[in-house]
Structures are given as structure tokens and as C-alpha cells.
Amino acid sequence: MVPLTLPELEKTALKIRRHVIEMIHAAGSGHPGGSLSATDILVSLYFGNILKFDHRNPKAEKRDRFILSYGHVAPAYYAVLAEMGVFNEDLLLNLRSLDSSLQGHPSKVHADFVETSTGSLGQGLSVGAGMALALKSKKAKEKVVVLSSDGEQNEGSHWEAVMFAGHHSLGNLNLIIDQNCMQVGGMTTEVLNLEPLAEKYHASGWDVYQTDGHDFRRLLTSLSNFNNKGNKPRVVIARTIRGKGVSFMEGNEKYHACTLSEEECKRALNELVKG
């Protein structure tokens, strides 16, 4: 696929955000705040050609492995996959319905395109590290990309994997942190301070890049460092805004997990019309 131009990326992201709102409204519950902060990252990965991925064959052996470690932002992920053509857009409104492949959190048992079931925080990077080891062992050229949140950085098991990846020189393992600075209980600095986050990764043997998670030009420049080579895993810490794109949701803790009323849905969609 030819990567989209910057205006095209903006336009696609707007469409994804509209889907996110409509999906969560239809489902009656979900996580709009994180889904909207993750949207530009996900759009960059798939439409900016950071991931080697064939929508006609999402489980092709020669694909980059992508793990959405903080599974609760699944609506944005599903919307991106639908937009890529993995499945029909109509399916999106089945989010969280009985027997749907679009479970509230990505489920490998329900959806074949999912690499690993996630939703319980602190597990994605470990599984990604195992996949990275496996790919190295098979001498495969593909890379592993894990998307995590700053809230997930609280999990001790995540840091077990950070140390493991550094120690084993997993140069084919790549991580993005959607740093919207908020978690369920409030600001990350108030709940459990992570700083200095970049230094922690440095100290564990990782290459660290910091960027603006809503500026496609800067985001793509940082993400283009992702590869399968070298002897250091790498992390892109992307500063984002929870609820990005919808004024009344931006930085508003009410919109971590919630239902979206008809009125809220309408107001949000009205804002998501032009870039």
C-alpha cells in the first residue's frame, strides 16, 4: 500500500474518530477517551505504512505482529481495521454485541485478526517479547509492535518484560506509549508518578524517542525508527490528549469509560466534521 499523505491521514483519522463515537454509542458502553487519544497513532501505524500488513490476508506469515496491549481502546483499533478493509465497516456497530467478533476487548478466540487477547493490563509486552524471540529464532524479518498506555506502565509485569527485552537485545521489538497523562483514578502524576519515564527505558537498554502523538509528521518520523534490526528494543513515547478531537471530552476524566447519550453522540459528531 502507498502511504497516505498528511491531509489524507488527517481525513482518515477524523473518520476513525466518528466511528469510535458511533460504535460506543451503539454498544451502550466503552472507552472513548483512550480510543480518541490512540487514533492518530493507530492511523499512522496502518496508513503510514509503519506496519507490514496485508488487509486481504491479515494473518499472512510475513506480517508485522501488532499487539494492542491496553485492549480497552479496541473501538479505534477495530475502526482502523475496517477502514483498511479487513472487514466490512457495517460490522463496527456490532461492538460488544453477543457473539460479535468485535468484543469489548480484543479477543483472539472471537476474532482471527487479533494476535493475542488483551484487556488485562501488563501482559502485551511479555507476549510481544515472546513473539520477538520466536521471530528471531525463525530468522524472520518481521517486527513486533506493541501499543501500550501510560496507565499500563503501573503494572509490574510490564517492567519484567522491559528488562527482558533489553537483556535479550530484542531489536525486533518496538513499543509505543500513548501518554495521555490520565488514568482511571486521575492524572498519572497524582496516582503513581512514572517520571522519569524515558530514563527508565534508557536504563533498561532501550532506544527512546519522544514525540507528539497527534502530529502526523512528527509521529511518522519517530515511528519510522521501528524495525527488526539492531540489538536494542525501542520505544516511542507519544504525548497525547485523552478524548482528542471532541472538545468536551478532551482531558475530561468522565470519558475514560462511559455510555454516550444520543445528545453527546450528536455533539461529538458535529465537531468531527472537518480537519
Binding site: 493475542t116 511479555s126 507476549v127 515472546g130 513473539m131 527482558f164 537483556h167
Partner: peptide, 24 residues
């Protein structure tokens, strides 16, 4: 084909799962 992951049982499981999902 051997890994001592250190005193880190949660990661032991995750890494094993990653290997399994890749066919090992």
C-alpha cells in the same frame, strides 16, 4: 531453546505465550 527469564513469573507466561503463538 532455553530461557531463564529471571525471577519474573508473569513475564515467563507472556514470553511462553508469544513463542506458542508463533508455532513453538
Amino acid at each position: 531453546r532455553f530461557f531463564n527469564v529471571g525471577v519474573a513469573e508473569a513475564n515467563l507466561i507472556g514470553v511462553s505465550v508469544g513463542l506458542a503463538l508463533e508455532g513453538f
